[in-house]
Design a protein around this nucleic acid. Sequence first.
RNA 1: GCGCCAAUAGCUCAGUUGGAUAGAGCAACAGCCUUCUAAGCUGUGGGUCAGAGGUUCGAAUCCUCUUUGGCGUACCA
Length: 604
Amino acid sequence: MSNEFEDNDVEYIVMIQQVKEQWRQLISEQLVLLAKEKSIDENELLKAGPLSVQIPPKPEMGDLAFPLFPFAKVFRSSPAQIVSMLKERLVGVCGVSESSILPAGPYLNIRLDVSSLARDVYTRVSNEKDSYGHTSYLKGKRIMVEFSCPNTNKPLHLGHLRNDAIGESVSAILKANGAEVQKVNLINNRGVHICKSMLAYQKFSDGETPESAGIKGDHLVGKYYVRFAQWEKEDPSATEQAQQMLKKWENGDEEVLSLWNRMNGWTIDGVEQTYKKTGVSFDAYYYESDTYMLGKDNILKGLENGVFYKEEDGSVWIDLSEINLDKKVVLRKDGTSLYLTQDIGTAIQRHEKWPFDSLIYVVASEQSYHFKVLFYVLEKLGYEWAKDLHHLSYGMVNLPDGKMKSREGTVVDADDLFDSLTSLAKQEIIGKAREDIVGDVDKVSASIALGALNYYLLQTTTTKDMIFNPDDSISFSGNTGPYLQYMGARISSMLKKWDEMKHDFDGIEFDPAVLDLQEERELIKQIALFPSLVLEGAKEYNPSVITSYLYDLSRLFSRYYHDHAVLKAQSSVLIKARVTLVEMVLQVLKNAYALVGIPFLESM
RNA sequence: GCGCCAAUAGCUCAGUUGGAUAGAGCAACAGCCUUCUAAGCUGUGGGUCAGAGGUUCGAAUCCUCUUUGGCGUACCA
């Protein structure tokens, strides 16, 4: 799946791909000449298709691989024979050094001149610093990203955390590709579910407040939402009473409105605190209570224009047979609006306030039907920009025993989870007796918790369902956020030592030629690869591209510095070169962390 | 019923436009701390890529069917 933007007119330079393309061209040319020599028809050759470039499975096999299977038929030779003919030409005619060509059966493998790549990478990383890896793919595009969208009747849970992590990360990735991004939140503050917590509060609370009870506002409101569910079991009239309250709300009943304002304030205040802890922020807020009327107006307009039709009972419908769906109610028979109606209004208001080139809704996959209908309705209403709307559908978060269910009390609360992660991180720091080195223990613990959480939530491909295993999620070893942060911290600590000794290296230039270890070659290539993954992440709206890149880079680095001394290398030139490499790794780590919500820590 | 999505090691997940011996982490076992942070590194064991066909020189990847699971198909949000 790719997004709506065209690749044309966009210039983004991705070093390793340039090198790839150069080699592909060179070899393709030789393939054509070879065919001519053998009097093979050019059209025949074309049938074999363009030459493809791959990466060999093992680094010692070379850096690039060109499989020659497809050409066997045309050349009436085995792929291996073609490889050896090509090698002869490349070395003899093109003057390519023999050592850079590694024939491997049917594959023509190329060993790159990594030191020249290292020099390019070094120039780019040291010039671009925090923006290394960024592209101009989406330059000039205005993209709105909607995510989180809490209800005002309960606190955030694990599902919101995945939503938030994806929303923040996708926004950061789009920005890194040059887009102007506006992050928006839609507060679901209207509807019968909101009235349920209000009603229970009225009946059972004795007027307690977050202050008097010493409970975070969203949790206090959530407590009454749960209380309603209990009461509903005892008193069958509960639901009806809630509906009556909704009617009062819609009629502007002052008492109801004032309670609504008060309790919404509590919830939003509590949710804001959670956002702050988890590094979530928005550029604009929208409220369903503000937009549902606009949606309703548009339905009525569409009714006049024949987009919708009215049933005898007064309800308004749209026929969806054009997109192979049934039909759908857009306005209730009593004239009140639905979820869909509100979303229509919200979209219109957004495009008026901030005309966008694209609007991305980060919403769980269970709502894909809703968005299909929403986009279709907007298109039918004549809004041209309806084609620019995109549902970024992410999978559900399940528990090892199955789905989270509020009725069964298996919902994982966002604050509880974050706080327990934080206290585990703190225990870890204390257990290692690193309080003094770390400094602000609470702050660092919270950053570790956040890194662990975001990495855990973003490493699964966005669109897939995932299982949240509480035991795994609180583990800080192996393929986890803290592992990645640890690399950054160790490099930082190494570079601090370097600061003290670097004046002895003043006259020494960075010489990439001395970085000839396999691990060093791999690290350089990995650094050079980063921009292409930032681009891929944006094209696919998929942060997991970045998380897996980060893990690969960290693992490469971790092995490297375990086995090879940097500050105590054999020669000054080598020390300087390795330090430079390490500095580049740190820069890329930081830039990648920023895209997936992993805080950088100088020490941990 | 219909529609959408998924199925890869005991568990959680990666797996590029179809390419070489399908990779990690966890869990298990065995090593490595007077050595740039052991939140680390190394090694061992663990696979019918749900099943069956098809396309292809070549399929975890593309197509068809089957099985299993999830979600949707509300005048809920």
